[in-house]
Nucleic acid binder design. Structure first.
Lengths: 236, 236
DNA sequence: CGGCCGGTTGATCTTCCTCAAATAAAGTGG
DNA sequence: CCACTTTATTTGAGGAAGATCAACCGGCCG
């Protein structure tokens, strides 16, 4: 795979994504190198960068690689014929994109922020997995994690209102946010705009905005500016 | 695994589930025997039966087997602390339950109707998969299918109203329903009650009922009794 | 400065939930 | 087989949550 020349969604390419074969992992990446999955990337992966707004993979195109996010945020979504979009997950440092041994992307992935990634070819994954039960299990667990993540989201769609969904999301996000989004003052940065949150939580961006206001009003969260937050209440 | 003595959910056990080791597949099952997955069950599986309302697996309990539905309908769901339930899928003849190599059930599965199943131990699956890339890919594809099914449901939760969701469900159900639920008159039988449909579609059972009435009124579906239907319109 | 984009807030309207009642279907015991 | 209980389904009325449409604010960029 080569990210150079990948189509950009809305704007013309301002900076060309770079691709760098077999570079050494940087110190910042070291913390991710502790499973058989990470071994896979450290040995067979190559580095790729994608600029904000760039597209990593496009629904329907051949899927030849497995990606590991090193830094930045990715939105993975499906886009309906009528243009409506649903974001299934925001992938961050340490997350994999393109699990499952199916040869066509079944979703679209876009860079919410500038990205650094590592990529390995699926062939390499298959070849290694054939003789490594640990790797197989690790990948399988990740895939199950994806499944549970969808199920949690479904559950919240069916039974929670806008404020609850947003608060749950913010809780999870602060828990899982990579260091790059954390500050000393305990505030976490939201890399995505309100519309993306809406498309993830099944709400309009207006409703998301109102839910933010309501949570601030009842002191469930604290905010600095429009994109830095901290969850205050421990309960609902 | 042994289904005898499995706890029943609401009522006392009226008929004891039976378990029968290593029986030959019946002629009715033959049609399912055509993939490496099915080979797995034909060689290493044993037959089990569960009565309507019986529980196949309980969230949190150790998961030691992989199940193949031979006949009947299963609901796979998670149940929240407050008793709210979400049904992720209805499994029917040919569907697998318990994919993913994780040792604890992450959901609850109950028999919507009387069931016949085949079960294999996960150990056997692992052992065979170790030397059978075809089997690995087949299982992986099934798991991805699950994932996509959840994503479709999420999409419909976010963007479709009650009637659209129900109609989509009925379309999919007629397409995928096993022969046992089909009649000569093109009508398909819904094995589950309105409440189950609601818990699957993220609606109350009253809303499901109203959606049925509305679809009948505008001749999008035809119904005979309360549980046999046929989709009439080809479009929305 | 003016336009654009993202975010906030308000007013109105639609959809679906909630509560309630009536009806239908299915099993139970005599 | 019938009266009776229980459960599933349908339908109605009222209310709440969120979508839609619209106005406004503030920052950023040409």
């Amino acid at each position: 795979m080569d990210f150079v020349g990948f189509p950009e969604r809305t704007k013309p390419v301002r900076h060309h994504p770079l691709s760098e074969r077999m570079s050494r992992p940087s110190p910042a990446e070291e913390s991710l190198w502790h499973t058989s999955v990470s071994m896979l990337f450290s040995r067979h992966g190559y580095l790729a960068q994608v600029r904000q707004g760039g597209i990593l993979c496009l629904h329907g195109e051949p899927a030849e690689t497995l990606l590991l996010v090193i830094s930045g945020t990715v939105r993975c979504c499906t886009i309906a014929e009528d243009g409506r979009r649903h974001i299934f997950r925001f992938a961050q440092a340490g997350d994999l994109i393109g699990l499952s041994e199916v040869d066509i992307w079944h979703f679209t992935a876009e860079a919410v922020t500038d990205l650094r990634l590592r990529a390995v070819s699926r062939e390499a994954v298959q070849a290694l997995a054939a003789n490594d039960p640990g790797l197989r299990q690790a990948l399988s667990r990740r895939l199950l994690g994806e499944l549970r993540c969808r199920e949690n989201l479904l559950m919240s769609f069916a039974h929670q209102n806008a404020e609850e969904r947003l608060l749950d999301f913010l809780r999870r996000f602060s828990r899982e946010a990579p260091p790059e989004l954390r500050a000393e003052d305990q505030l976490v940065t939201l890399p995505m705009p309100r519309r993306d949150l809406g498309d993830h939580l099944g709400l309009t961006f207006e409703t998301v905005s109102r839910a933010f206001s309501a949570l601030k009003r009842r002191a469930a969260i604290e905010m600095r500016g429009t994109d830095r937050f901290r969850v205050l209440s421990a309960q609902l």
